[in-house]
Design a protein around this nucleic acid. Structure first.
Length: 325
DNA sequence: ATTCGTGTGCCACCCCTCAC
DNA sequence: GTGAGGGGTGGCACACGAAT
């Protein structure tokens, strides 16, 4: 049998309501009684029953995160950052690897206070799929127009990368990323690349816009091999993501390409992992810490008062220089 | 209808101070 | 010495959702 506040009340010799107040540091209980209650709770190994607490408070302190099926280091890193921030606010993050609709149903049964999902999951849902009754926040483009979202300006990020490379004298700049029809975020990057070249007065060479056909490192590796097979190689490459960049790096290193001397690289995904690659990569994007801060703050606001949420927060990307360009 | 565990509004009781 | 007044403290009762 687990320890409840009634066991504590017996041990201390006060009513269980006094125990509840003492454990919640109520000013209505004198310090001496609080001390006795807290000590008894610790000695008995008391752990609050969250299900019972949620009956009263209407909150469980749980946040459900729908994990997108795409395996990407940037997402793991971001989710870890968000989880740490939620924990400091007394919230517990639950991760589901089920299909989005199933994950949402499970989270609703668990009475989570809010649900966080990624655009990758959102666009796998159909128009007839039920939206949760609890607040939902999407990272990226939301699954429905009025669903709150924290988004990154990906177009501006890639423009920033192109501008930095042009500034360093590059004119033959390739872009590697997947062209996924329904993914606004990938399409935005392609548009950013094209618009930035146009703005710099550099004619667009079709062969330098490479569809990686996926977001995993292998996709980056194969795209890089195609780049290296070109009669006239690019002098710089922009990668659409961290994982693609690590594949590109692997392909370049395998062919003895010196970075940035032979080919410079700038990658999307402003995450700490970029620093730890064999060659620390220059990156563009919203810094992970800033994104995690914004997501956490929005989730807390959603739990407090969902009606006060802005529909879309668009975060501004930054460029960080390392050793690859 | 009852049970589970918890949070909390309301109220009773205790005890101290002060006026008579 | 006695009683009124008031602040501090803690207990009662109820609410909650789901299962039985």
């Amino acid at each position: 049998m687990s320890v409840t506040i009634k066991d504590i009340s017996k041990q201390v010799g006060v009513s269980y309501s006094t125990v509840a107040k003492a454990l919640n540091n109520s000013p209505l209980v004198k310090e001496e009684t609080k001390r006795k209650v807290v000590e008894a709770a610790a000695s008995l190994g008391y752990r609050p029953n969250l299900a019972a607490r949620s009956l009263v408070t209407k909150r469980t302190g749980l946040v459900g995160i729908v994990w997108p099926s795409v395996e990407r280091a940037a997402l793991s890193s971001l989710v870890t950052s968000i989880q740490r921030r939620l924990a400091t606010k007394g919230l517990t993050a639950l991760l589901s690897i089920h299909e989005p609709q199933e994950a949402i149903q499970t989270f609703e049964r668990l009475r989570v206070d809010a649900i966080l999902m990624f655009e990758e999951s959102a666009f796998r849902m159909t128009a007839v799929d039920q939206l949760p009754t609890v607040p939902v926040l999407t990272i990226g483009t939301p699954l429905r127009e009025h669903v709150p979202a924290v988004d990154m300006n990906r177009r501006a990020a890639i423009k920033l990368a192109v501008a930095k490379l042009v500034e360093n004298g590059h004119t033959r700049i390739a872009y590697v990323g997947p062209y996924i029809d329904e993914s606004m975020q990938q399409r935005e990057k392609w548009i950013g690349y094209q618009e930035a070249l146009q703005a710099a007065g550099i004619p667009l060479a079709d062969e330098l816009l490479l569809d990686s056909e996926g977001l995993q490192w292998q996709n980056g590796y194969h795209a890089a091999k195609r780049l290296l097979a070109m009669p006239e190689r690019p002098t710089a490459v922009i990668s659409g993501s961290y994982d693609l960049a690590s594949g590109i790096l692997r392909a370049f290193q395998g062919e003895g390409i010196a970075i940035p001397h032979d080919i410079a690289i700038v990658s999307y995904d402003h995450i700490p992992h970029m620093e730890q690659l064999d060659i620390p990569l220059s990156a563009v994007g919203v810094p992970e810490a800033k994104l995690a801060d914004a997501v956490t703050a929005t989730l807390l606001q959603a739990i407090e008062d969902a009606s006060s949420l802005p529909t879309r927060t668009l975060l501004v990307p930054e460029y960080v220089h390392r050793e690859s360009d």
